[in-house]
């Protein structure tokens, strides 16, 4: 464990609390992509199922339980509790275009061709692109509530902080995880446009609006 990874994980936790808080205070899931949230459930289930056979640490174990359960809870909030506030006509990205290619890539580019390893690799690739439906939705509406942008910023910062973590681990332990690194860089790259608007508008006290 190092400070980059710890801060990254804390940003990830924060993003989930911000999202749940947003839905509770506004009593709605407006502006939130159900598809992105469903993809996160799939990501966490396929990656963290190893908690049944691989022991790393209490930290690792409890975080896995938290991410699986919180993502399912969020899906419940969007799909049942706040369903009337969900507008499917805005959430139209085709997730098949993400799940299919990620699965094929996981079959081709992996460390070992076995069940648990393919699941892990698939989850890494899928996590990298799972934000697409959410970004697509914001592109369509051209705006986002401020609290939603805080959620996305924390979520983006989480993977961005893993990059210095990988550099640090390379120098201190000699470990390199090319699959996670390449996917993590792609994942962070997808947020660059968002980060630009977040820093230049939201952090200056303005509303998050995309140019028409």
């Amino acid at each position: 464990m190092n400070v980059f990874r710890l801060l990254g994980d804390l940003a990830h936790l924060a993003s989930i609390f911000i999202l749940v808080h947003k839905m509770h205070i506004t009593r709605s899931c407006r502006g939130i992509s159900f598809k992105t949230q469903a993809l996160y459930v799939l990501v966490f289930l396929t990656r963290y199922l190893d908690l049944f056979w691989a022991w790393i640490s209490w930290y690792n174990f409890l975080m896995k339980i938290f991410f699986i359960s919180s993502s399912c809870y969020i899906l419940y909030l969007v799909h049942y509790r706040f369903r009337p506030t969900y507008d499917p006509s805005l959430d139209t990205f085709k997730v098949e275009y993400l799940v299919g290619p990620c699965f094929v890539l996981a079959l081709i580019f992996n460390y070992h061709f076995d069940f648990s390893e393919i699941l892990w690799t698939f989850s890494i690739y899928l996590e990298a692109v799972a934000i697409f439906p959410q970004l697509f939705m914001m592109q369509r509406t051209g705006e986002a509530e401020t609290i939603t942008t805080h959620y996305l910023a924390a979520l983006g910062v989480y993977r961005a902080l893993y990059i210095p973590n990988w550099i640090y681990r390379y120098y201190t332990e000699g470990t390199v995880d090319p699959i996670a690194i390449v996917a993590g860089i792609v994942q962070t790259g997808l947020y660059l446009d968002f980060f630009y608007v977040y820093v230049t508008k939201v952090l200056q006290g303005q509303k998050f609006e995309l140019p028409a």
């Binding site: 990874r5 994980d9 990656r47 190893d50 691989a54 640490s57 896995k64 460390y111 470990t175 390199v176």
Partner: peptide, 10 residues
Amino acid sequence: AKPSEAHDEL
């Protein structure tokens, strides 16, 4: 250690 030996990151 090879990266594939243990996925210790979240």
